[in-house]
Amino acid sequence: MQAKLYIFISLGLLATVQALSDLATDVRRCSDDKPFPLEVRVDRCITPPCYIIKGSTQYFEIDFAVDKYITSMKAKVKATTLGIITVPYELPPEVAAVCPNLMFGAYCPLYPTEDVTYLFAFPIGEYPEIGVKVEISLVDQDDDIATCFVCDIKVVKGNVSGS
């Protein structure tokens, strides 16, 4: 009887830990009413600002739906610091390419009403330890935005767990 209770409690704790790690991150809409993702999960972050270690890779899982036939996609990032300075954040081609980084067996082409998950491995350079607003857009072969969101991050050094 005790062994069954122990297994039941262990499974319950495992499910709780898994559920907490799968919680969506509280991201914001981009300007101009651009399509918003179904859900975004930033590794180790539920409530921004997300603490991101410089020199590391931060993982985002972006769930989104498409409304047209898409043969290729790429990620684009803009970073805003001090609330006034906005610059494009160049991504390596293998990171910017959305189609090869789709999860759960999805692949391009994508068809209207299809929903998929993109694993975005965001490389964080050796930047000053500051707060940054990042706007992440996924654009298709026609340069139309399929989805877009904004997330506040705080670049930090060392081994910091997110919020």
Rank of each mutant, 00 (worst) to 15 (best):
K4V: 15
I7K: 14
I9Q: 06
I9G: 08
I9D: 05
V17K: 11
A19Y: 04
L20N: 13
S21C: 11
S21Q: 14
L23Y: 13
A24N: 04
D32F: 04
K34V: 07
F36R: 12
P37G: 05
P37N: 04
L38E: 10
E39D: 09
R41M: 05
D43T: 14
R44H: 11
R44W: 12
I46D: 06
P48N: 07
I52S: 11
I53E: 15
K54N: 08
F60E: 00
I62C: 01
D63I: 13
V66C: 05
D67L: 14
Y69G: 13
I70Y: 06
T71M: 06
K74A: 13
K74N: 14
K74P: 10
A79L: 07
A79Y: 02
A79W: 03
T80A: 06
L82A: 13
G83K: 01
I84M: 13
I85L: 12
V87S: 10
Y89M: 08
Y89R: 08
P92V: 08
V95F: 07
A96M: 04
A97S: 00
N101H: 02
M103S: 15
M103V: 12
G105E: 08
G105Q: 07
G105A: 07
A106T: 03
A106G: 05
T113K: 11
D115P: 11
T117C: 02
T117Y: 00
Y118A: 01
F120A: 03
A121V: 05
I124L: 02
P128R: 06
P128I: 10
E129Q: 04
E129H: 05
E129Y: 08
I130F: 08
G131V: 07
V132Y: 00
V132C: 03
V134F: 04
I136A: 07
I145G: 04
A146Y: 03
C148S: 05
D152P: 03
I153P: 03
K154D: 12
V155D: 03
N159R: 13
V160D: 04
V160C: 10
V160A: 02
V160F: 01
G162W: 04
G162A: 10
